[in-house]
Design a protein around this nucleic acid. Structure first.
Lengths: 154, 154
DNA sequence: ATCGATGCAAAAGTTTTGCATATAC
DNA sequence: GTATATGCAAAACTTTTGCATCGAT
């Protein structure tokens, strides 16, 4: 089952199962990180997630290192995926990232997503032509989004 | 004229003109950074460039900060372009990057380049469809290159 | 009770910045 | 001579790591 189509409870059960089968522990911190990413669909930096949890669950102890460690874990498990912004770090989103690409706005930092079958297929052809064993791909269209263009015209 | 088709002398003249018209100064350090990138076609980190210059021109004083500052300048002027590797920093190459994309090998870190007209065209269509003013795009196919696959089979 | 997870602070790695000095113009 | 560029070292940022302690199993 693909993470993107699962309910929060299914995701959580799945995550617990995964932890158990790897002899890892189910902790409040790990649960909250999944919860924040699942219930606020969007793109978050590790710091965003840290701040949101601090704000919404001030009773829970949490260190930024745990956020980084958990995000690595979740990405390995294909529960979240990341998009890189060079030195400015990464943003994480719920679900598998392989099946969509991004439009990144230079003005507001916002991200829109798209899927394009022609591009997906073409990437496979290119990898094949170069005898390249493709494990992943990244495609970003960078520019100015619709609403930021509108703001500039004001 | 596109940088990619220029001789070293043309590039240098062009660079001098650019500096002059912006009231910037032509320095040995700036010249050497252009020289290294032009004459060693490939992908270099700022540190690579710093080390190469230290090694080949030990008589020239150079700080890493100057390399960073000059690369920013050169990228703004479309003389070099960069490809990002997340926290691992950026690599720079001579010429405009907009017109080719990259195959990045996870094993050896090597980079191959490709140009695909279908992908170029499709990106424009997607930008248009989303009312997105595209200024740039990034496409990386990530995996294992041909020779690293061969090494693994040994 | 055991062994993994956590928080904290320190460390690591890349990139930027402040400032006095050097250099191109 | 003036304004910009440079080197150096310190600072800034993001991410990782070591370690004592905590907590899930």
């Amino acid at each position: 089952m693909e993470a993107n189509n699962m309910t929060y409870d299914e995701v959580l059960q799945n995550f617990k199962k995964l932890l158990k089968s790897n002899r890892l522990k189910y902790t409040k911190q790990r649960e909250l990180i999944v919860e924040i990413i699942y219930n606020n669909r969007g793109h978050f930096t590790p710091e965003d997630i840290y701040n949101l949890i601090k704000e919404r669950y001030p009773e829970v102890k949490l260190g930024i290192a745990t956020v980084y460690r958990t995000l690595t874990l979740l990405e390995d498990a294909n529960i979240v995926s990341s998009i890189s912004f060079g030195t400015q770090g990464k943003k994480y989103e719920f679900g598998l990232g392989e099946h969509h690409d991004h439009l990144v706005c230079l003005e507001c930092g916002g991200i829109e997503e798209f899927i394009d079958e022609i591009i997906e297929r073409q990437q496979e052809l290119i990898a094949k032509k170069h005898n390249f064993q493709m494990t992943n791909h990244i495609m970003k269209i960078i520019g100015v989004c619709n609403s930021c263009q509108a703001k500039k015209r004001e």
